[in-house]
Design a protein around this nucleic acid. Sequence first.
RNA 1: GGCCCUGUCGUCUAGAGGCCUAGGACACGGCCCUUUCAAGGCCGCGACACGGGUUCGAAUCCCGUCAGGGUCACCA
Length: 548
Amino acid sequence: MKRSTRKARSFRRGQASRSLRHANRPRRDFRTKQIMTIRTRFAPSPTGYLHIGGVRTALFNWLLTRRHQGTYVLRIEDTDTERNKPEALQPILDGFRWLGIPWDEGPEVDGPYAPYFQSQRFATYKEAAMRMLASGHAYTDYLTKDQLDSERKAAEVAKKPYIHRGPHRATPADECVRLYAANPTALRLKVPEGRSVVIDDVIRGRVEVQTDTIGDPVILRPDGRPLYNFAAVIDDVAMKITHVIRAAEHLSNTPVQVLVYEALGLPMPTFAHVPVVNEPNSKKKLSKRDMKKFVTADVRAKLRMVGYTDEQIESRDDLNPATVAFYRELGYLPTAIVNYLARLGWSLDDKAEKISMADLIANFSLERVSSAPASFDPDKLYWLAGEYMKELPLEEKVAGCVPFLQRAGLLGASPTPAEIEKLTKIVTAAGDRLKLFSDILTYGRPFLVAKIDYDPKGVEKRLKKAGAADHLRAFAEVLKTAEPFDVPTLDKSLHEYCAAKAIKSGELVHPVRVATTGVEVGVGLFDALAILGRDTVLARIEDALRLA
RNA sequence: GGCCCUGUCGUCUAGAGGCCUAGGACACGGCCCUUUCAAGGCCGCGACACGGGUUCGAAUCCCGUCAGGGUCACCA
C-alpha cells in the first residue's frame, strides 16, 4: 500500500517537471484525460462567513481555470435545510468579490447549468437515485435512527469497526422499487463487497481503499433531500466539472463517490485533494468550529481599535482570524491575502514570495501543490500586507484609510478637499509604517483630533527629563519665527538650535515629539510639525509645559 | 480503535541519487543607518523524525518504527 503510494508520488513529480519545462504549451501537455476546457468548482455551504482555508481551496480552483482559459463554478451546497440559512450566503459572495476571485457560473451570474443551488436541484437527485434503485445499486432502508445508533454502539462495545449493511441489501431491485413507491424511505448505496476502489489523485498519487471498510451510505433522505456524497457527484457530472479540487478532509469520502460514478456509469473527473490548513504553529486543522479561541486579547484590542464593541465581537462569529472578514475589517489588502494563500502549500520556485496575480495565473499548477498540511502564519501574511501597501498608489492608500477614520469619528461622512489634502500629507508622512489601512488610526490620530491625550510614559520619560522644559520653551521661540514653516526649515532650525546649545538633537526631538503629538512613536518629527502647523504646534507645546 | 494521509529550520518552502558544507522567505537575535517607530543594509540562530537496507554515493529509492493529522452521520 505504502509502496504504491510513494511510487505514484515520484511518478507524479516526474510529470510535474515535464509540464513545467513546457509551460508555454499547457493545453497540450496538461496531464489529464480531458482535452476539453477545464471546469472546476468550489462548493461552499452557506455558513455566514468565508473561512480562510476555504478561500485557499477556491483560489486553487480559480487559478487553474484562469491559467487554462477554463470555467470556474460556484455551487451552493445547501441540502441540509436544517442548518443552512439563505442570508448566510451573502458574506461568502461578498468575500470572494472583495478578494478578486469572481466566478464564471453560479449565484447572481447564473450560467448554462443553472440552478447552482443544490436545494433547487432535488428532482435531479431523485431521478438519479431512482435509477440506482432500479438497477440494484441502491436499496431501501427502513431502520430508524435509534436502531442505527444501537447498531453502532454494539459495534463499538465489540471493538469492531461499524460497517452498516441494511436489511434490504439483498432484496431484488424491483422489490425495492415497489417498497419505495409504497413507502418512501432513506436510500442507501449498495457498496460492492470484496474489492478495492482506486483513486488517482493528482496531488496524493494512487490511493486504494477496500470496499469492505466502507459502510453503505445514505444517498437520499426519506423526504428526498440528497446527502453530500451523492449530490456532489450528480452535480459535478451535470455541471461538467473536469477537476475536483477540494480539501484533503474529503479524501475519505472519495471512494464512496467513485462508487456512485461507477453505479451510474458516469465519467469520472480528475481528483486533487489539497492538504488542510493548520492552526498557527500547530499540526491541527484550522477548524470552522471553536474559532472563538483565536480571539485573543491582542486580536480583541485590534478589533476594538477599528470600532467594534465587545458585544459585537462576542456575537459575530466572523470576527476572528480564521475568516476573510477579519482581515478586511483590519484593512489588509486583498491582493496580499490572495498572494499569501496561494503560497500556503504551493510554490512557484525556490525564491518567489511576492507573486502578482498575473504571475500566479501564468504559473499555477496542481503539480506544485504540496501534499503535506501547512500551518497558517499570521506574521507572514502581515508582512506581505505591508509589501503590497508599499506599492499602492497614494490616492488609493488615502481612499482606503478614509472609512477607518470615519468609523473612528476622526473624519466626517463626506470629507472636504482640504481634509483629503491633509490626510494625503499624513499618509505620505506615514510612508512604509502604514501596512494596514487601520494603521492610519495610530499614525493619523494626533493630526485629526483637536486635543491630544498625553501618554503618561512619554511624559515621564521625555517631558519631565531635566532640561527638557527649558529647551522646549526656548525652541518654541525659534518656531515662532521659522519661515516658511516647512520640513527643511524646521529641520534646519532644530539642528541649529541644538548646535548652539551643544546638545544632541535627540534631547530636543523627543520632548518636542511628545509635546506636540502626545506619543513617542509616530511619523518623522518635522513632517509632523509641518502638518500640524505653527499655531497648533505652539499651543500644544504650551499645554505640554504644564505637564513637565 | 478501523481506514486513509503526511513527515526538510519555530512557520511557509526549494530539493526529482553526486550541483547540499541542505538554498530562499517570515519570525527571532545582533549590528549599521537614524529623530522615535517603520522601511532599508549587513550578520547570526536554525531542519532532512528515527532505524535498517539498495548504491561508489541517499534529504532524495525500498522496508520498518515512531510521530502528527484527516475521517469514520439520514453534516458538508
